[in-house]
Computed example of a mutant assay.
Amino acid sequence: MTLAYHILDVFTERPFGGNPLAVVLDADHLTTAEMQTIAREFNLSETVFVLKPTSAGHTARVRIFTPSRELPFAGHPTLGAAILLAELRATNGNGDNDAIIALEEEAGSIRVGVRMRANSVSFGEFDAPKMSSAAVEAISEPEELAAAIALIPVELGFENHKPSLMRGHSTFAFLPISNLDVMSQVKVMPQHWARAFTDHGVDGVYLYTRQCVRAHSAFHVRMFAPDLGVPEDPATGSAAASFASIIHQFDVLPDGTHKRAIEQGIEMGRPSAIQLTMTVARGKLEGVRIGGHAVRVAEGTLRIYVPSAAGLPLGGPSGRS
């Protein structure tokens, strides 16, 4: 059996920036174990498997895997898969196209608006799924948190922003960092990480500061998820969606629509740009939208072998860029 796959760079307008994503098409006959094995083979932060939808009105069903486990929702896989499907279905290959791609995910139905323009990189935007819990919780002691990322407690926090925990489809710890110089010094300290984060059920640790490299950015961020098999992530749409609650909590946004540009991946040499749009009504955060570009950089074929006496049922990817 052979399956087509594509590699996209997501949350960027340029190849080899942003967050790379593998999308495997026509994956209905793969088992969960096979999907996990393939995701581990690609070894990207996430791999998406596209299947036939189970309900009318949807474009596709998708399953999302990190190298170590399946996720109910993730931002850059949602955006990248939708943009790819829109491009593959576009009726006017050399002109302007707009599409709505409706995806079935474990977290629910997500509709992605995709804008395709001649001589331009495709852009997509989606409403983030509602979180099961939007409460902002305190997390650990500053000394534990700082030790886990090779900092000292005084380097955590700015203005009224304090370390917080958000539980939703994934659980993120949000750590405000005093400035860009401190952000560049961060590194994961395994001997302290488990007590500060893993023991609290944290999937990823999202560090942010108002000091930015790009003039138009509102926040500079880094995200680490070693427990998911992701040492550092170049762009994290799901965490950005949860970050909206952090911004609303500490910045006390007034009613209306608020846009924030988030830069990420710069320390990794994979600069990313995430557009975060928040809608506040009657003092409550009512809606969150995540937007960004994605560009295709490679495509190829997965060869899936019949189980052999050596016990190796799966082949590997072959492709071209």
Rank of each mutant, 00 (worst) to 15 (best):
D181Q: 14
R222Y: 06
I177C: 00
D26T: 07
I139P: 01
R69K: 14
I100G: 03
R40W: 06
Q191E: 13
L3H: 15
F174Y: 15
G75I: 03
I83M: 03
T31H: 08
A309F: 15
Q185A: 14
A147I: 05
V182N: 05
L145F: 07
D98T: 15
V280E: 13
I64K: 04
A60P: 07
D9W: 01
G229K: 08
V230W: 05
F49I: 05
E159L: 10
P234A: 15
S308Y: 11
V297R: 05
G300E: 08
A102N: 12
E137T: 10
E299D: 13
A273H: 06
W193H: 02
L285T: 12
A146H: 00
G113T: 12
H220S: 13
R61Q: 10
T257Y: 02
T277S: 15
L151K: 03
G300C: 01
G157D: 02
S217P: 04
L88F: 05
Q249F: 11
A173V: 07
A239N: 09
S55F: 02
R167A: 12
S164T: 11
L21K: 03
P15Y: 10
R320I: 07
R117W: 00
G113S: 13
T32W: 02
F126S: 04
T91Y: 03
E46H: 08
L302G: 01
T31K: 09
R282I: 05
I64P: 01
P313H: 12
Q249M: 09
L25H: 12
L88Q: 15
A22D: 10
I139G: 06
H76I: 00
